[in-house]
Computed example of a mutant assay.
Amino acid sequence: MGLYIEARIRADLDDLWARTQDPARHQRWDLRFSEITYLPRAEGEPQRFRYATRVLPFLTVAGTGISAGEKERPDGTRTSALRFASPHPLSLLAEGSGYWRYVPDGDGIRFLTGYDYRPRWGTLGALADRLLFRPLMGWATAWSFDRLRLWLERGITPERARLNWLAEVTVRALVITIACTTLTSDAAALALLGPLAPTAAYLCPLLLALAITLALFTPPLPGTPAARRCLRTPPTRVRAPRLLRTLGTPR
């Protein structure tokens, strides 16, 4: 699979399964989707669904998918697989497939995903995907997994987690803005320091550089979701579950 994301979550397996398999709860924590709706199905058939992603305030891209899950496996793990496609001409993502695995591990669960997709728009689309869209999708998935972890482990709702993230990003941006503004301000202010001016002129850029570095690289607060907390490379070679091969094509 092209993208791999893994989070270790200290939670009950049934709770994790419910918050990832129930569309109403899934769409709350997953940044990649604005809406997920299950479609009617007959007993024993895979579940078909519609999804939508709000790309801009005035643009929503929709698609369809088909999924199936294995809630009881001999090794104690669970698996969910899906195929998806979007006919929307403005959607870079044409079609794809992926899976979720739930692996009990001591006092927690390794919740991991692998997925890949085919971009549209030919060579231009492939280039845009490699340089921008695929890294963005990887970040969004990891950030969402950590938001889910905060919901299960600390009781921080997805909505509150988003506000925490926005607040922290705003503070970091303000620190960088103030530092850059100070660095480029009129040097005449240093003249007021008299004989200390040369020392201040030497120290100010260093202090400002330190402030910018801290704003960029200080670890996020415990209640703020962060993609960096997730594993982005599989520890061992992974294979897509056999369940994925049983699924048909979305329609």
Rank of each mutant, 00 (worst) to 15 (best):
G2S: 07
L3G: 02
L3P: 00
L3S: 02
E6K: 13
A7D: 04
A7L: 05
I9M: 00
D15I: 04
L16N: 06
W17F: 07
Q21V: 04
P23A: 09
R25N: 08
R28I: 08
R28E: 11
F33S: 13
S34N: 07
T37P: 02
L39D: 09
E43L: 06
Q47W: 03
Q47E: 07
R50E: 04
R54E: 11
R54A: 13
V55L: 15
P57Q: 03
A62I: 14
S67P: 00
G69W: 00
K71F: 07
K71N: 09
G76F: 12
S80L: 02
R83Q: 05
F84H: 00
A85F: 05
A85V: 13
S86Y: 03
S86K: 13
P89T: 09
S91I: 05
S91A: 09
S91Y: 01
L93K: 02
A94Y: 15
G96Q: 01
S97R: 13
W100I: 04
V103R: 12
P104E: 05
D105S: 14
G106T: 15
F111G: 01
L112C: 07
T113H: 00
T123S: 10
T123C: 10
L127A: 03
L127G: 01
D129V: 01
L132F: 13
L136V: 11
G138N: 07
T141Y: 02
S144N: 08
L148N: 01
R149T: 06
R149Q: 13
W151P: 00
W151S: 11
E153V: 03
G155E: 13
I156F: 12
P158K: 11
R162N: 13
L163Y: 10
W165Y: 15
W165S: 14
A167N: 09
V171S: 05
V175F: 09
V175N: 07
V175G: 04
I178S: 02
C180S: 15
L183S: 04
T184Y: 07
S185Y: 08
A187G: 11
A188Y: 04
L190P: 00
L193K: 13
G194K: 08
L196W: 13
P198M: 06
A201L: 10
C204S: 10
L206I: 06
L207Q: 08
L207D: 00
A211K: 02
A211V: 01
A211S: 11
A211T: 03
A211C: 09
I212K: 10
L216V: 14
L216A: 12
L216I: 10
P222I: 02
T224A: 12
C230L: 03
L231N: 03
T233W: 04
T233C: 08
P234K: 11
P234L: 04
P235L: 06
T236S: 12
P241T: 13
R242C: 03
L243G: 04
L244M: 09
L244Q: 08
R245A: 03
R245Y: 11
T246C: 02
P250Q: 12
